[in-house]
Design a protein around this nucleic acid. Structure first.
Length: 233
DNA sequence: GCGACAG
DNA sequence: ATCTTGTCGC
């Protein structure tokens, strides 16, 4: 689990083996709730139905929790040909290279990362937030819009703010979190250097008036805008 | 074999 | 992931 754990894998078997190895390095403790500079990562891809063809774009938003707003937006782009295909369970090999390029363009490194995808709530315990966290040695939390892996422990109440544990047998993988009433739940899971409870506390502390936590909401908005607008230098 | 399947 | 305005409900 060293240098290029993000190099394009030559097979899914190789990728899975790497995921299992890196998962051993994940640290499931730490409290990033006091962090001021929060990084949020999201990507936008064209499809054969997209009006705008061209490269995929990833955005890194630097969020200032002191000021409660976006400090910086950095972007990076790559053509489909250089990207690993999207295969459920292997998202990090596709999107993490884009995220690294975007992060490198921020004027300062975030203290904690919020990533659009799973943390450890993953078949091999290494979703994209965990992979990036271990690779960068940075605290990270995964916030996914749909479930990939794990079984919710009971029904999730309809009330905004409620959460139920996401389990794999006896082990907790994360949370199903009702961020607002009347919306589909988010899947929150620790990525690296963050405790189970703390991962949920962090996301709760960053909620605004919509389904997604504010930093990720802005990352999502800007990723779409940047991709449609054209070249990201 | 069948179903499930982050973005 | 993408397309797409107004509109219905918590």
């Amino acid at each position: 689990m060293h240098p290029n754990s993000l190099a394009r894998p030559s097979s899914l078997q190789e990728a899975a083996a790497l995921q299992r190895a890196l998962a051993q390095a994940v640290v499931l403790a730490g409290n990033p709730c006091g962090a001021r500079y929060i990084g949020a990562l999201d990507a936008s891809h064209p499809t054969r139905f997209s009006k705008v063809k061209g490269p995929s774009v990833a955005v890194a938003v630097l969020w200032d929790r002191q000021a409660g707003g976006v400090l910086e937006v950095a972007a990076a782009q790559m053509d489909e040909a250089e990207l690993f295909p999207y295969i459920p369970g292997y998202l990090s090999f596709r999107e993490a290279p884009l995220y690294l390029a975007a992060l490198a363009r921020l004027s300062r490194p975030p203290e904690v990362l919020l990533v659009d995808g799973q943390g450890i709530a993953h078949p091999r315990r290494l979703g994209i937030a965990a992979h990036l966290g271990v690779y960068l040695d940075l605290p990270a939390v995964g916030v996914a819009k749909t479930l990939l892996f794990g079984r919710p422990e009971g029904a999730l109440p309809l009330q905004a703010g409620s959460a139920v544990r996401l389990m794999d047998g006896e082990a907790q993988m994360g949370w199903l979190f009702r961020s607002r009433s009347g919306v589909r739940p988010l899947v929150v899971s620790p990525g690296h250097q963050v405790g189970m409870e703390e991962s949920l506390a962090l996301v709760r502390s960053l909620m605004g008036k919509t389904r997604l936590p504010e930093p990720l909401r802005w990352a999502h908005i800007h990723a779409g805008l940047q991709r449609r607008q054209a070249n990201v230098r």
